[in-house]
């Protein structure tokens, strides 16, 4: 499989990356907890936390990618996204998870769990959205 060029990878998932929470606290990406996102969203005037439940994970015609169907928010809006298999999502109460944890660890040095149907992921939405 073609290895993704480092330039294409978002730098903030690299182990050791410094993340600033809404209250100004600095944490490493691998040390983030569910409450860090919840408390940051509570402080934010524009953003709020949504919970997005994984309903399906299907192969994609794009190499090294999958199509994930989520049920998003209170209204369970159906949303499909295509992501690289190593893309990490933050699962409530579990932490970083991806469709191919070994590849995530290989590319980001970020250890994570296997993303499964039924997992509830942290996502964001604007407070102004209906």
């Amino acid at each position: 499989a073609s290895s993704t060029s480092p330039a294409a990878l978002p730098p903030f998932f690299m182990r050791g990356s410094i993340i600033q929470l809404a209250d100004g606290e600095l944490k490493r990406v691998e040390d983030l907890r569910t409450e860090d996102f919840i408390q940051s969203a509570e402080i934010s005037s524009e953003l709020k936390i949504d919970s997005s439940t994984v309903e399906r994970i299907d192969c994609s015609p794009t190499p090294n990618a999958v199509v994930i169907q989520f049920a998003v928010g209170e209204l369970k809006a159906q949303v499909c996204v295509e992501v690289l298999v190593e893309y990490p999502f933050f699962v409530f109460g579990q932490g970083w998870s991806s469709c191919c944890p070994d590849r995530t660890t290989q590319l980001f040095e970020l250890s994570c769990a296997k993303l499964c149907v039924g997992d509830v992921c942290v996502s964001l939405t604007l407070r102004s959205l209906r």
Binding site: S17, I19, Q20, V81, S128, L129
Partner: peptide, 25 residues
Amino acid sequence: NVEPRSVPVFPWHSLVPFLAPTQTD
């Protein structure tokens, strides 16, 4: 002498996706 080097700091909201279908007020 060790030159001080800047370390990038990323905002918390860049790590989680916006998935909600968009329709603003």
